[in-house]
Design a protein around this nucleic acid. Sequence first.
DNA 1: CAGTATCCCGCGTGATACTG
DNA 2: CAGTATCACGCGGGATACTG
Lengths: 119, 119
Amino acid sequence: MDYDRFKYCGLNVALNVLSGKWKPVILFHLFHEEEVRFTELWRNIPKVAKKVLLEQLKQMEEDGVVIRKEKNTFPPEVYYRISEKGKALGPALAALESWAREHAAEDVAAMRAAKRVTP
Amino acid sequence: MDYDRFKYCGLNVALNVLSGKWKPVILFHLFHEEEVRFTELWRNIPKVAKKVLLEQLKQMEEDGVVIRKEKNTFPPEVYYRISEKGKALGPALAALESWAREHAAEDVAAMRAAKRVTP
DNA sequence: CAGTATCCCGCGTGATACTG
DNA sequence: CAGTATCACGCGGGATACTG
């Protein structure tokens, strides 16, 4: 394994994109559903405040991992889907998950400070 | 790519282990140096408060990614090194970095809110 | 030298109500 | 329905001094 390619600044960029309490769940849904209306997404992530969900989606849009599509109707319809840049995160996310499965399975139930929601 | 293996709870576990302003840098050093004395590590990460560095190291130790070895001397000598569990993070970290290189290179210099240090 | 004790501050998150 | 406006709070992180 060549750890010479381990430049932590790029790592920080990536982690920054992922840092946000609900971003992993959002990615989970967008990876699986291809195009989700806002309310539907909101209903599927029950405990998040609407404001916060909007914030995180906006950040992800700015980061280019999520695409927002708005129909000019009334009432408004807004759909979110993952971008190519977002899809490209797939392998990295899968790697993180498999690490968790193989090396931190015990911790899934008892995450430090129980800060994150783990259904 | 099988996104059925995309279980975001494991993802959250992994991200939780990585969440901490200085953990990426710490990992960077431990990946490259095999055994570092505390002060040496501290000198190599200039802008961090000693307290905070100790906190993050302690968390990483609790998470099992870092091993603390203490010599019973005076003055005390404490060495930190990466564990097997920590080493196993390598591929995932490399994946995140390569994603950043390929899809977010522009952002490296202009990270949102400039919250993170990127030398 | 490694670690602890205080005190402090800002930001991410949350609850709630309002608007177009 | 999607989005904004307030207000509030806890916690991660920082500065500084002290201890064994």
